[in-house]
Design a protein around this nucleic acid. Structure first.
Lengths: 344, 344
DNA sequence: GTTAGCACTCGTTATGTTTGAGTGCTAATT
DNA sequence: AATTAGCACTCAAACATAACGAGTGCTAAC
């Protein structure tokens, strides 16, 4: 339904606007070398494109800027073959070259890298604790009545809870409990710990522990403790570089929004779909992000969804570049993590 | 050297400016009920105060605002008897009423509380790991060749390192090593771990381990691993509410400065002196903070310095309130922590 | 179908004017 | 001698006006 010329003009307009953040007029377009029509012709085409809703004016005699519909069309149909800068590819690859033994560290570095090379803000959802399996459990008493529970997952993640022990639980009780738990719960995914506790452990505890009921109750509460997955941010201050965020009020609103971790969690979780996902402006459910686009991709371990990478920027975002980056990084991350943690 | 009247005027001027962030003229001062002189008299006094450097004009015919010297004088000599709002006291006390078993959590909540009730940005230096003592050490192998070292301190803090084990160290070596370390290093402060390793452990390892040299070398490197103390922030976006930070460039500069954790660490560490410490404007070594004041107080456990609380705001800051708050919170924190961790 | 031409729109910038809150200084008052 | 009234002066802020120019839409010619 769009003529080739219209496609060309739309493409140019969006590309230029993404670069310069300034409305583009018919004359500037006509002056380009790849354009052989007069500004008048382009004016007509621009009028048509506007009528179709792909572009809009900021005021009655201004040049045109892309509308959200325009960006959507651009992302869906006009993406120039994603060009990865060699420099960027190298930096991503080097992330995995240096020994980074801790998953948390690797993800933190990824977040920083993403924000550095894109100049936008990156958000990464840490690995889902609930799908990882218990590797080892340890209880360390630190004073009378309190102890630290340490749970270690197969991804090397350490989860800790300081707890008050049930009354009348002494050192030997504690030791027996730990032994039972380790024996029966190793390899069990966090999400199943509670069920397994009753299926496998209850009987044993009954025979080996004095006040097994209190202990069981206590453990139930402990395993219920929904530890939400960590959210990592990179380059939050990059937002301040964007010309669309020169107004402090807007910055404040956006910061407050992205700091609500539960909202962000939902937002990134929606994009669990395979591949890279782009949400433009109002497509984001969060009101304060109406001037932003969010590009997400997810990473996994051995086919099991683990977390998500995201880049947050103005709707006027370098879509091709960011999409390429996220695609590459999410795939690399998946590959490396699977290799590292799936074989055991 | 200042007359009573000058003191009064200076006091009023600073109090008002702190509230309204607007230059104050002679007429507005003279209209106050506690003032019985004419605006002309006040004009003369203001001229004198300006000559002495306590106040300044923003332009030749503007009202006066406090200079840094003025604020310094105000903090040193004019602080109205620190009035604590009852509401604030309650909120601080309630921090300690609810069971907060983890020190990290308690500190994080403190940071948030401080920023909420002051509307400034809070910065807290987490407890110094180096002065806490080893309570328990644990090694959990997670795959061939790698393991997680878990160190637990007497303050219930869990420190973890994922490491590659030295070649040829098998499960039984590992177990023996853990046992030796636990036996000999319990109760040793982190800062002495390395020394004790050679004094106490070397000999034992020699007799019990095959390739003790590699292991020793490995442990040395591990204990060298300077884990810097964590910095907690609260209410970073509060900066955006201040009228002196309506310019995005300034915000950016400040954010970039306070995110350099080593700088912040130094800054807060300087104020290790007993009691509450106030740094005004250029008194802060960080260039970007020249429009800010930093108020710090430190907390300790059993006399041993642990960390610092700080509030960062514009030089036009509610000094009396903030000083009162930090004084109260730092003392409460010290009391509670000492009680909790010093008795063992 | 394309383009030259032109009247028109409107944000931006520059310029001038007015206003008012402030000053410093002097002379009169206490 | 200290205080105050009075007044000329300053300057940022607010407002009005005009000029500019990058853009438009439309019409008529190519």
């Amino acid at each position: 339904m769009l003529t080739d010329r219209q496609l060309l003009i739309l493409q140019i307009l969006i590309d230029e606007y993404i670069q310069n953040a300034e409305p583009l007029g018919s004359r500037s377009i006509s002056k380009r070398q790849d354009i052989s029509f007069s500004s008048a012709t382009i004016r007509n085409e621009l009028a048509d494109l506007e009528e179709m809703g792909f572009i809009e004016k900021t005021h009655s005699s201004s040049g045109r800027i892309p509308s959200e519909k325009g960006y959507r069309f651009y992302v869906d149909n006009l993406l120039s073959p994603v060009v990865m800068r060699n420099r960027d590819m190298k930096r991503i690859r080097s992330l995995f070259h240096e020994k980074m033994l801790e998953l948390e560290m690797l993800i933190e570095h990824s977040a920083n890298l993403l924000s550095e090379i894109t100049n936008y803000t990156s958000i990464i959802l840490g690995p889902e604790v609930y799908e990882t399996k218990l590797k080892h459990l340890q209880i360390v008493p630190i004073s009378t009545g309190t102890a630290i529970f340490i749970l270690i997952t197969d991804t090397g993640h350490v989860e800790k809870y300081t707890v008050e022990l049930p009354d009348g639980m002494d050192a030997s009780d504690l030791e027996r409990t730990v032994n039972i738990l380790n024996e029966r719960l190793k390899g069990v995914p966090f999400s199943h710990l509670k069920i397994k506790l009753y299926q496998e452990v209850e009987g044993l505890m009954k025979t080996h522990l004095r006040n097994y009921e209190k202990t069981l109750d206590f453990l139930t509460r402990l395993f219920q403790n929904e530890k939400s997955d960590k959210v990592y941010y990179g380059g939050k201050t990059n937002i301040l570089n964007q010309p669309e965020f020169q107004d402090v009020e807007k910055v404040k609103a956006l910061y407050n929004a992205i700091e609500k971790q539960d909202l962000v969690y939902q937002l990134l979780h929606q994009g669990t779909i395979e591949g890279v996902n782009v949400k433009i402006g109002a497509e984001n459910s969060i009101q304060e992000m109406k001037n932003c686009s969010l590009i997400t991709a997810s990473y996994s371990i051995g086919g099991q969804h683990m977390g998500a990478l995201a880049i947050l920027g103005p709707t006027r975002m370098e879509y091709p570049r960011v999409i390429g980056l996220l695609d590459l990084l999410s795939k690399d991350l998946t590959k490396v993590l699977t290799q590292r943690y799936y074989s055991n």
